[in-house]
Simulated assay, not measured.
Amino acid sequence: MAKGGLGKGLDALLPQAQSEAGFSPAAVAKSALSEKRAGQPQSASGLKNTSSPAANGTDIFVSVDLLQPNPHQPRREFDEEALKELAESIKEHGIIQPVLVEKAEGDSYYIIAGERRTRAARIAGLTEIPVRIQKFSDTKKLEVALIENIQREDLNPLEEAKAYYKLMELGNLNQEETARRVGKNRSTVANALRLLKLPENMQKALSAGTLSAGHARAILSVNDSTSRTKLFNRIIDDGISVREAEELAAEMNKGKISLSKKTVKTADKRDADYIFLEQNLIEKLGTKVSLKGNFERGSITIDYFSREDLDRLYNIFFAE
């Protein structure tokens, strides 16, 4: 089966990002630990400050007040608790890898990759942090920020979908080219982009986490907008599973159910881990998947709803 993970990371996009100036995360961590053991004040990253001009490719320390968010940052929501945890880690170990920035007007810089680290550094009380200066096109700014967030799984499904769309728009790319840029399968990008077809209220629920991507795809599989709204309300009101939502969607398309009255919800008596496995398969494949049996023996049924859907599934399993 084709892997859904990234085929490249920031190092592939920025081959000089750690080689110049003798920088490596391991060396920085060792330096920071040595300073701590020696009872010396620990710098923001363990790197020595530099008075070198702020040239392209240079590592320097910059005031956090001079760092501005990437105008093409795909992420709009930051978990405050996660930032506090990262801030505690920064207090203890410093910033292991410089924040990637681009020169802006005056003395300021745009954050290209590392906004979470910058926010956490502010919470930790740091006034200066290490940065690496690079120059990017608008397309590359978005691409780098998108890859960093995807690698850390920091984007909600809607943010990821909007980022793919923006990358396609800025770079004049098709889905295949976009997927290649960020190291994803084309089907992953295609599935994400489908979420942008949801009406605004459903997109807000997706961003808030009250609606999962699997639920959203079940809603999108319903033929008419009125039935989609009914299914959405049922998901929110009753908290039904993705599998139940998919079954209801299929019944609605056949005209066998209207959801004008609540249907009886039957309890799923299968092993919780088995249900979890089924949910993961649904999320990964982006379609209805049914597991029957147990961990020792059973069957898997994978549904498709169009020729395009069948081609997409084929590529997931057999694309090299």
Rank of each mutant, 00 (worst) to 15 (best):
L83D: 12
G94F: 01
A82I: 08
P41H: 03
Y110M: 02
S108Q: 08
S63L: 08
S108C: 05
I60R: 12
T50L: 13
N70W: 06
V62K: 01
V101F: 10
V99D: 07
P53C: 11
I96V: 13
S45R: 03
P74F: 07
Q40H: 04
R76E: 14
S51A: 10
A54Y: 12
I112N: 14
Q68T: 00
F78L: 08
G39D: 11
E81H: 08
R75V: 01
P53R: 12
D107V: 09
R75Y: 02
N56E: 14
Q73N: 08
V99E: 06
K91F: 07
G94N: 02
S52P: 06
E80K: 04
E77Y: 12
I96T: 12
Q97V: 09
E81V: 05
N49K: 15
T58D: 15
V99K: 01
Q97I: 13
E85M: 11
N56M: 06
V62D: 03
V99T: 04
H93R: 00
E77C: 09
K103F: 04
P98H: 14
G46Q: 15
H72D: 14
I60H: 07
S89H: 06
R75K: 03
N49A: 15
G57V: 00
F61P: 05
Q68M: 05
A113H: 09
P69S: 11
G94T: 02
T50C: 10
Q68W: 01
E80I: 01
K91H: 06
L100G: 03
A104D: 05
V64H: 02
I95E: 15
G94W: 00
T50I: 09
S52L: 14
N56Q: 12
A44Y: 04
A113F: 06
P71S: 10
N56C: 08
Q68E: 06
I96N: 12
S89T: 07
L83R: 08
L66G: 10
S52F: 13
R75G: 01
I95F: 05
A38Y: 00
A55F: 02
A54M: 11
D107M: 14
L100I: 14
Q97M: 13
S51Q: 11
K84Y: 11
D107N: 14
V99F: 04
P53H: 13
E92P: 00
K91E: 14
S45Q: 03
G39T: 08
